[in-house]
Design a protein around this nucleic acid. Structure first.
Length: 422
DNA sequence: TCTGGGGTCCTAGGACCC
DNA sequence: TCTGGGGTCCTAGGACCC
C-alpha cells in the first residue's frame, strides 16, 4: 500500500508561510528570468491563469485582478521541502522523496485506519511547517497519484485524504479522468490513445495490456497494469546516483560578446563542479551548448554544442572551466544574439574509483586540487555561494537573471532573517 | 522588450563480437 | 533458388516526470 503525499500549490504555499497576509489571495510564481507562470494559488487558478503562461501575456490582467506576483526562490522551496520530508519520515518505515513537493510513503502492513492516520499526517505537516498537503492511498503508485489528484479537487468525503479502498464504485470517477492526466501519460501518448478511442482512465484500464504494449511499449503497459491494481513501479527508498548533471540558464538580456558568454559558462561550470563534489562524482566529458532565442523569428538563429573529453575524470572546477572555455570558443560565432547557454556533464563516475591516465597522472597535483576544492566549498558554504569565484566569471554580470519580484531567503541567508518588531 | 530548468527511461538501429 | 545464429554496446530520438 502506497500513500502519495503532495504539497498543495507548493511554491505559493511556501511564500505564504513567511507572508501570511497572502492567505486567501491569488498568487503566481514565475520561472527563472520571470518568464512563465510555474505555480499558482487556488485563487489564481480560479481566475483562469494557466500553468506555463508567459508572464508578459498576462501582466496587465494580473494587475487588474490584484494578483500577487513573485519570482521563484529555490532556496526557500528547497529548505521548506526538506522540512516537510523530515516530518513525513516520522510516519512510515520507508519513504521515497519523489520530487521537491511529493513523497511516496510505504503504508504496507499497517493495520489501523489509514484515512485517520493520513489525516493526522496532514495536520502535523501543516502545524510543524505551515505547508498544506493532500494524500492519496492506494495499492499502486499510479492509483495513489490518481486518488491524490481527486482529493485535491475536493472530491473526497474525507477532505484532504482519499483511500482507494474506500471508494465503493471507482469506475465513474475513472471515466471522468482524461487519459493524459494519468501519471505517465501525457499529450503525445494521449493523442495516440485517443485516436484508438481510449479517452479516459477507465477505458485505458479496460484495454488489453498486450495490445497496449504492441502500440506503446512497456512503459504504457505498466500504466495499464497499475490502473488494474497490479504494482509494477516499486518504492525507491535510496535515491539512485545521478547519471548526469546540467546547469543552464536563459540570460537576463541577449548576449552578443564572447566575454559575456564566457562569464556565464564559467559560472555554470563552477556550479556543475560543485554539484559533482557534493554527490561524490567525477566527470569524464563536458558538453557546452549555446543558442539564440527560438521565439525571436526575425533575427538569425544559431545553436551549437560541443563535447570535450577530459584527460582524466575530474571534479576540479578550474580544470572543467578551462575545458568549457575552450569548447565555447570553438562553437561561438559572432553576430548572433544569444539567449541561453548551458553545461552538461553526461557521463559520471564515482569519485575515488576513476581511471587515471597512465602517462600524466600526478598524485601530488591531484591531492592539491582536492584540498583546494574542499577549501573553496567550505568558504562558500560559510560565507555564501559567491564568496569565492573564478576570474572569468567576474568578467561580466550581463547574463544574470531578471528577478523583479524576488523574496528574501528567510531560512538560508543570515541577512534575510525576519525581524520581529515589538 | 518579454517564453524555465533539470532529470529519467525505452526503443530502434547500427556497429561490433564469436 | 538457396548465404547462420546469438549476443553486446553505443547513440540518437522520443517519450515522460516534476
Amino acid at each position: 500500500m502506497f500513500a502519495l503525499v503532495d504539497c498543495n500549490n507548493f511554491y505559493a504555499s511556501a511564500h505564504r508561510v513567511f507572508q501570511p497576509q497572502l492567505e486567501g489571495k491569488p498568487i503566481i510564481v514565475l520561472s527563472n528570468n520571470d518568464g512563465c507562470v510555474i505555480a499558482r494559488s487556488n485563487q489564481a487558478k480560479q481566475i483562469g491563469i494557466a500553468m506555463g503562461t508567459p508572464y508578459f501575456q498576462i501582466e496587465k490582467f494580473a494587475q487588474q485582478q490584484g494578483v500577487v506576483v513573485l519570482s521563484s526562490n529555490y532556496s526557500v522551496y528547497g529548505d521548506m521541502s526538506r522540512r516537510v520530508m523530515t516530518v513525513l519520515a516520522n510516519f512510515a518505515p520507508t519513504l521515497e522523496i519523489y520530487s521537491i513537493d511529493e513523497a511516496f510513503l510505504n503504508f504496507s502492513g499497517l493495520t489501523f485506519d489509514l484515512t485517520d492516520y493520513a489525516l493526522g499526517i496532514c495536520k502535523t505537516v501543516k502545524q510543524w511547517t505551515g505547508i498544506p498537503v493532500s494524500i492519496g492511498i492506494a495499492p499502486t503508485k499510479t492509483l495513489a497519484k490518481l486518488t491524490n489528484r481527486l482529493a485535491k479537487k475536493g472530491l473526497s468525503p474525507d477532505g484532504q485524504v482519499w483511500a482507494w479502498s474506500k471508494i465503493a464504485d471507482p469506475d465513474p470517477l475513472l471515466a471522468a479522468v482524461p487519459v493524459e492526466d494519468v501519471w505517465g501519460i501525457s499529450k503525445g501518448w494521449g493523442k495516440r490513445l485517443r485516436a484508438l478511442g481510449i479517452e479516459h482512465a477507465l477505458s485505458l484500464r479496460e484495454t488489453d495490456p498486450k495490445r497496449i504494449r504492441q502500440h506503446f511499449g512497456v512503459v504504457v503497459e505498466r500504466v495499464v497494469l497499475e490502473l488494474r491494481g497490479v504494482p509494477c513501479i516499486p518504492l525507491e527508498t535510496v535515491p539512485p546516483t545521478r547519471k548526469q548533471i546540467m546547469t543552464s540558464r536563459s540570460f537576463g538580456e541577449k548576449l552578443i560578446r564572447l566575454e559575456d558568454l564566457r562569464a556565464a559558462v564559467t559560472a555554470f561550470t563552477a556550479r556543475s563542479s560543485e554539484k559533482l563534489r557534493t554527490q561524490g562524482l567525477c566527470a569524464q566529458v563536458i558538453t557546452v551548448f549555446i543558442h539564440t532565442s527560438p521565439f525571436d523569428t526575425k533575427s538569425p538563429q544559431y545553436s551549437n554544442s560541443i563535447t570535450i573529453e577530459l584527460a582524466r575524470p575530474s571534479q576540479d572546477s578550474a580544470y572543467l572551466i578551462h575545458c568549457a572555455a575552450y569548447g565555447l570558443e570553438r562553437i561561438f560565432r559572432p553576430g548572433y544574439a544569444y539567449q541561453r547557454a548551458g553545461v552538461l556533464l553526461p557521463d559520471l563516475v564515482p569519485a575515488g574509483v576513476e581511471q587515471f591516465s597512465l602517462f600524466d597522472d600526478n598524485p601530488v597535483e591531484t591531492h592539491r586540487s582536492e584540498r583546494l576544492m574542499e577549501a573553496i566549498d567550505e568558504i562558500n558554504r560559510v560565507y555564501g555561494r559567491q564568496a569565492i569565484r573564478y576570474g572569468s566569471e567576474a568578467l561580466s554580470e550581463r547574463w544574470r537573471m531578471r528577478q523583479q519580484f524576488k523574496s528574501p531567503s528567510y531560512t538560508t541567508r543570515w541577512t534575510d532573517l525576519m525581524t520581529i518588531k515589538c
